Amino acid sequence: MLMLTDSSDLVQTALYFAARAHNGQQRPGSDLPYFVHLSDVTLEVAATLAVEPGHDHTLALCCALLHDVLEDTTIEEATLAARFGPAVAAGVRALTKDPTLPAAERMPDSLRRIQQQPREVWLVKLADRISNLSVPPPAHWSPDRVAGYRAEGELILNTLGIASPRLAARLRAKIERYGVQ
């Protein structure tokens, strides 16, 4: 099914696919469409690709756009593989937390799987957490929950930060400011 002639065609296909898959969803804690989060992550990745050479732009941008499709929609991995190829499907699978695991094991498991992927997938996880830390914590979160989310950001940074000096610096700054009034 991968018969697109240009890698930008595949990225554009991913853009529309993600928009349709997440249609009607909202970014948690806001009245914004969920696609704003996907766009934010993709813009972080694109800005990094512009200044850090040597990455597969198509893989990075497709994974950024599609990173929550398996976790937050009814789309199946086989569909992603057929539409976007095995590398994109594997990257998105690694970025997807395993709901069958206890909550405390989900992020470490995902990070282990991300580390087995090309560095472009690492960029997406870093950008995803930057995006999530760019909005205030939900009002109903306790100080302990905010601190736990910040600590999880530290884990992501310490595990994957080597993939991108730019994203590591941005994530560090977001962690330091998260939840601070």
Rank of each mutant, 00 (worst) to 15 (best):
Leu4Asn: 10
Leu4Arg: 15
Thr5Val: 11
Ser7Gln: 07
Ser8Thr: 00
Asp9Val: 05
Leu10Val: 14
Leu10Arg: 15
Ala14Gly: 12
Ala14Glu: 06
Ala14Tyr: 07
Leu15Asn: 04
Ala18Cys: 00
Ala18Ser: 10
Ala19Ser: 06
Arg20Ile: 00
Ala21Trp: 03
Gln26Met: 07
Gln26Lys: 12
Arg27Lys: 11
Gly29Gln: 05
Asp31Leu: 15
Leu32Met: 08
Pro33His: 07
Pro33Tyr: 04
Phe35Asn: 00
Val36His: 04
His37Gly: 01
Leu38Gly: 06
Val41Leu: 13
Val41Lys: 13
Thr42Met: 08
Thr42Arg: 06
Thr42Cys: 05
Leu43Lys: 13
Val45Asn: 10
Ala47Glu: 09
Val51Gly: 06
Pro53Trp: 04
His55Arg: 15
Thr58Ser: 08
Thr58Met: 14
Leu61His: 10
Cys63Trp: 02
Cys63Val: 06
Ala64Asn: 01
Leu65Ala: 09
His67Pro: 00
Asp68Tyr: 01
Asp68Ala: 15
Leu70Tyr: 07
Glu71Val: 02
Ile75Val: 15
Glu76Phe: 05
Glu76Val: 15
Glu77Arg: 15
Ala78Asp: 09
Thr79Met: 10
Thr79Lys: 09
Leu80Pro: 00
Ala81Ile: 01
Ala82Gly: 03
Ala82Phe: 06
Arg83Asp: 04
Phe84Ser: 03
Gly85Cys: 06
Ala87Asp: 05
Ala87Thr: 04
Val88Tyr: 03
Ala89Leu: 02
Ala90Ile: 06
Ala90Arg: 12
Gly91Val: 05
Val92Leu: 12
Arg93Tyr: 04
Thr96Ser: 14
Pro99Glu: 12
Ala103Arg: 12
Ala104Arg: 10
Pro108Ala: 02
Pro108Glu: 01
Asp109Pro: 01
Asp109Cys: 14
Ser110Lys: 05
Leu111Thr: 12
Arg112Tyr: 02
Arg113Glu: 06
Arg113Tyr: 01
Gln115Asp: 05
Gln117Pro: 00
Gln117Met: 15
Pro118Thr: 08
Arg119Gln: 06
Val121Ile: 13
Trp122Ala: 15
Ala127Pro: 00
Arg129Leu: 09
Ile130Met: 07
Ile130Gln: 02
Asn132Phe: 03
Leu133Ala: 06
Val135Ile: 10
Pro138Val: 13
Pro138Asn: 15
His140Leu: 13
His140Ser: 12
Trp141Thr: 02
Trp141Arg: 13
Ser142Cys: 11
Ser142Asn: 08
Ala147Lys: 11
Gly148Leu: 14
Gly148Asp: 11
Tyr149Thr: 03
Gly153Cys: 09
Leu155Glu: 14
Ile156Tyr: 04
Leu157Thr: 02
Asn158Arg: 11
Leu160Gly: 01
Leu160Ile: 02
Gly161Leu: 11
Gly161Ile: 11
Ile162Met: 13
Ile162His: 04
Ile162Ser: 13
Ala163Glu: 00
Ala163Phe: 02
Ala163Leu: 02
Ser164Trp: 04
Arg166Cys: 00
Leu167Lys: 13
Ala168Gln: 14
Leu171Asp: 01
Arg172Cys: 03
Ala173Leu: 10
Lys174Phe: 05
Lys174Ser: 12
Arg177Thr: 07
Arg177Asp: 01
Gln181Met: 10
